[in-house]
């Protein structure tokens, strides 16, 4: 589903990703952990075709990036810690706008369906700027799944959420995984990663330093596994 070979990204002379290799198969949930500045967001932005790689090969569902980025963009849904929503439009108007941009079929029905799914149907006419952070994040997920993507990319989706919103997001993420999406999520939260993901990769200094499947590790061992992986790339 996602294949990345020898990915490099430099900003000027500063290398951020240094020959990164990564794979995620269909229906897999991969959590990418790593310290600040490891290159997690850069990696996700390249997968989302928002940033051009310096070198390397990337394929999503068989389509190469950036050569067929337009096709790839119709297959992916992206959630970041920024809402990517217009505060002066209502929830319904935001979804209608993005639906038109994605040329979603039977848009009215789909917008209703998504608003019900994220629990915002009753407040669909309210302006987004009047929403709490948790409600905005729910709508952000609604925007990301509106066009029925097969791959979901989450960049630190828990940032700034209160406890209720975290529980709500956990539920939505479980539903997304249950529906067979391939999910890649970057996070600082080790416990949440091990709870939700089927595989955990540690990204450090622009490389995948270690990778482990959920069944091969307990939550107690995850911290030492993570620290060891980061330490090995920081001699």
């Amino acid at each position: 589903m996602i294949e990345v070979h020898n990915l490099e990204k430099r900003f000027g002379i500063k290398p951020v990703l240094k020959g990164l290799n990564f794979q995620a198969s269909s229906g897999e949930f991969v959590a990418i952990l790593g310290p600040n500045g490891a290159g997690k967001t850069t990696f996700l932005r390249i997968l989302a075709s928002l940033s051009r790689p310096s070198s390397g090969k990337i394929r999503i569902s068989g389509y190469p990036i950036p050569a067929q980025a337009g096709v790839v963009r119709s297959l992916i849904g992206v959630v970041t810690h920024q809402p990517l929503l217009y505060g002066d439009l209502s929830a319904e108007e935001n979804l209608f706008f993005y639906g038109r941009m994605y040329d979603v079929a039977k848009l009215e029905n789909r917008v209703c369906e998504v608003l019900q799914l994220v629990g915002l149907y009753n407040r669909r006419h309210d302006l987004v700027r009047t929403y709490s952070r948790g409600m905005q994040q729910r709508l952000t997920i609604g925007r990301a799944i509106l066009h029925k993507p097969v791959v979901m990319l989450f960049d630190e989706p828990y940032t700034g959420l209160d406890q209720d919103a975290v529980i709500m997001l956990d539920g939505i993420l479980r539903d997304i995984v249950a529906s067979g999406h391939t999910v890649v999520m970057t996070s600082h939260d080790l416990s949440r990663a091990v709870e939700l993901a089927s595989r955990i990769d540690v990204l450090s200094r622009g490389l995948i330093a270690a990778s482990v499947h959920k069944q091969d590790i307990t939550q107690d061992r995850l911290i030492s596994f993570y620290r060891q992986a980061v330490a090995e790339t920081n001699p």
């Binding site: 989302a48 928002l50 337009g70 096709v71 992206v78 970041t80 929503l85 217009y86």
Partner: peptide, 14 residues
């Protein structure tokens, strides 16, 4: 400012 430019750039349009 709200990252909406990324939202536009993510759309599968030219």
């Amino acid at each position: 400012d709200r990252g909406c430019l990324d939202g536009l750039l993510l759309a599968p349009v030219d």
